[in-house]
Amino acid sequence: MHGFANPARFLRIARWLMPLCMGAGFVVAFGALGWGLFFGPAERLQGETVRIVYLHVPAAWLGMAGWMGIAAASFMELVWRHPLAGIAARACAVPGAVFTAVCLITGSLWGRPAWGTWWVWDGRLTSMLVLLFLYFGWMALSQASEASDGGRNRAPAIFGLVGAVNIPIIHYSVIWWNSQHQAPSITVGKSAMAGAFLWPLLLAMLGFTLLFAGCVLARMRAILANQQAEARLRRKALGAAY
């Protein structure tokens, strides 16, 4: 991991990895969505609405993965002072928040025909909404830190680590508390889903994860380039002053 601490080395890798992730992500994600939407079967009880699963589950996974990325980068920033860690955390925030919002909206659109309601204040839905608010809070804190002292403040990193407490709460909410939301259908090495639903779902998860990675790499390149432009302009301004 420390090998990537050099921004020049990171940029060399990101220049070919980002388009690869985005291209492969588009093909796999939209292929899986097409498979699930046009060729997959309807479910015995839920009917056609089961097709929302191919968007809802990848969005839920990436909403949580985005915060796990922020927490891991925050840990690296606090412990090892990794120069790219803060940039990686900032790059994860918007894609993570977008997928969390997509998860909440698609879940609501699924809940209306399946449960007869758009929303219930149960553990899973509420903890996912809390995650969206955590993203908003983290982005506001990160921007304030960037504006006040150029991002040297460690408050966003501490917030990122503390906020990670919500991730196991989201995951276990359907086990710990009575919930309208179903229990996990896929666990490590086991699935309660039939193959006709499982394979397009796994492909969609892979495709959206690649797209997410591509977006994070593009955001990291953007943040790095802005920082380099700022540094160069500041040096020139100082050189002109003396």
Binding site: L33, L37, I52, H56, V94, V98, G214
Partner: peptide, 20 residues
Amino acid sequence: FVAAAYAVGIGATLAMTLWS
């Protein structure tokens, strides 16, 4: 509901990718 979910999901993904 399926069409609305796909419109939101695909629209948000495309918009985020383009913005990035």
